[in-house]
Design a protein around this nucleic acid. Structure first.
Lengths: 119, 119
DNA sequence: TTGACATATTCCCGTATAGGAATATATTGA
DNA sequence: TCAATATATTCCTATACGGGAATATGTCAA
């Protein structure tokens, strides 16, 4: 078997840096723009932009709206939330580390004060 | 060009469902276990587990510690935080939607009350 | 040293990419 | 109808996967 298709879910879709760039570009402008604008903004060939948008659309990270000959793409935050919820469940694993750093700093501070007081 | 290697960064590494399973298994037990335990727990062939662990290690999502002939793997939350920070920046895009849902519910509620009161 | 155990690595294969180039499809206006 | 514009799709190729099977490496204990 090969790798999971990029269209499998939000995780595989955002694995590609350029697709994250597209989401970022959409986000910076309120989350709604047509393809021409994205092509101009990103400076990539139009087919490349369309293809990446196709992947993002298939996994529901963006929605499309026909507007004459334009197609307006918009961010769908709900789908990104899948990723957010997953990673947030690991929060304690980096907060632990921060806590450890904090604890250590406090211990050192206590010891510093102790040294100033005679025993 | 092909797809970005899975060892490129945390995003590509966690795109694979089985690697997320490994992280999940580690997390459920305080974040520190050897390979045999993971093999037992996940029920996959040992080489498969080792190979996925190799990818996770290369991107820094886990650390290894030699313990005799065992190798103890531990979660490295700091690297997951990369993903967290990225996705958190889009928070408003799903909160917007929740807000919209909430606003709509409140508007409907107001209108329901209005109907009960004579104008 | 030797054997048993734990883990990593290699080789093979089918599959699915991402990018480039070319082309197809759809929509508008004259 | 026809040309122009906007966007999507197709075809091509190099690349790198993930799983299975086999094997290599490393470490302990007797």
């Amino acid at each position: 078997m090969a790798r999971s298709p990029t269209t499998a879910d939000a995780f595989t879709a955002i694995a590609e840096p350029r697709r994250r760039e597209i989401l970022g570009a959409l986000a910076n402008t309120g989350g709604k723009r047509d393809v021409s604008w994205l092509v101009q903004r990103l400076g990539w060939p139009q087919p490349q932009v369309s293809k990446h948008l196709g992947v993002l659309r298939k996994v529901g990270l963006v929605n499309v709206e026909r507007r004459g000959k334009r197609r307006v793409y918009s961010l769908n935050g709900a789908e990104l939330r899948t990723v957010y919820d997953w990673v947030k469940a690991y929060e304690r694993f980096w907060q632990h580390q921060l806590q450890r750093v904090k604890d250590r700093a406090e211990r050192i501070e206590r010891e510093r004060k102790k040294e100033n007081r005679p025993n």
